[in-house]
């Protein structure tokens, strides 16, 4: 299986994993130019964020990267192979948890395995799922149905579901925007830990500048009409990042800089 092979041959740290060249998207339905010639390269093990006002094409970009929709122009390459549809080595997380109420939390988490490799494989993955649940603080909720989980708990469970297949790239579309700030900070630190420990490449869409800065090596600032990357901000805070860093002057300066870049056009 070629995708499995791609998983094992992890490229060295810093090697390009994801490459987008001149990616554009025009929605045929309303002839809206949602994206215009986006260029970006994600390197192995890096954490990048894209930030921008509502409707500037962030979700569109993520959908193209994940292979959910085709681009109108340009080229998307992941680990040397063009993206022409959903792929095994991509883990995607949406704004909503989308757990299925007829499956227990544990069954929800092993669902990707069940779909890819069948029921037996899913059963074998249960121990791994339990370990993941423990990691995100949901130990003891294995057999609860999602209807009994809070929004934050459901979101944490859906992280486990994304991680269980050990994807090389994590694409996250505002995954924690429904959470309260404390939980959100905690989840962000968890996310960082998980990504570093697995050497995963992550790409995060967010509305929160501090969140983007505390997590990322690179922040892409997007502007609308048509959506394009207006600025690339490198964040050279040391790793691992801690929540304490959010009170440092350097952090504040970076946040201010990004905010000023956004302000100029966001509310025209």
């Amino acid at each position: 299986m070629p995708a499995a092979a791609a998983l094992t041959e992890t490229p060295p740290l810093g090697a390009p994993v994801y490459q987008l060249r001149n990616v554009g998207k025009t929605y045929a339905r309303n002839a809206i130019k949602a994206l215009d010639s986006v260029n970006l390269t994600l390197t192995q093990g890096s954490f990048s964020s894209v930030i921008g006002s509502s409707g500037c094409g962030k979700s569109t970009l993520l959908k193209i990267m994940s292979g959910l929709i085709p681009p109108s122009t340009g080229r998307v390459v992941l680990q040397g192979k063009p993206v022409t549809g959903p792929r095994r080595d991509i883990g995607m997380m949406f704004q909503q948890a989308t757990l299925f109420p007829w499956r227990t939390t544990l069954e929800n988490i092993v669902l990707p395995i069940e779909i890819r490799d069948g029921k037996a494989a899913a059963k074998a993955a249960r121990d791994k799922a339990r370990a993941l649940l423990e990691l995100v603080g949901l130990k003891g909720f294995e057999n609860t149905y999602p209807g009994e989980l809070s929004g934050g708990m459901a979101q944490r469970a859906s992280i486990c579901r994304m991680l269980i297949t050990e994807p090389a790239v994590l694409l996250l579309d505002e995954p924690f925007s429904a959470l309260d700030e404390l939980t959100r900070d905690f989840m962000n630190m968890e996310l960082q830990r998980i990504c570093t420990s697995r050497n995963a490449t992550a790409f995060l869409v967010t509305h929160s500048i501090p969140e983007a800065v505390i997590l990322s090596d690179v922040v892409y600032v997007m502007k609308p009409r048509p959506g394009h990357i207006a600025e690339v901000v490198e964040i050279d805070l040391p790793r691992p990042r801690t929540l304490d860093m959010m009170t440092t002057p350097k952090f504040g300066a970076i946040v201010e800089h990004i905010r000023s870049r956004l302000d100029k056009e966001a509310f025209i």
Partner: peptide, 14 residues
């Protein structure tokens, strides 16, 4: 359909 009355899934964005 023991889960009915519970939300089918959380949220609605595409």
């Amino acid at each position: 359909v023991f889960w009915q009355k519970d939300r089918v899934s959380t949220g609605g964005e595409g």
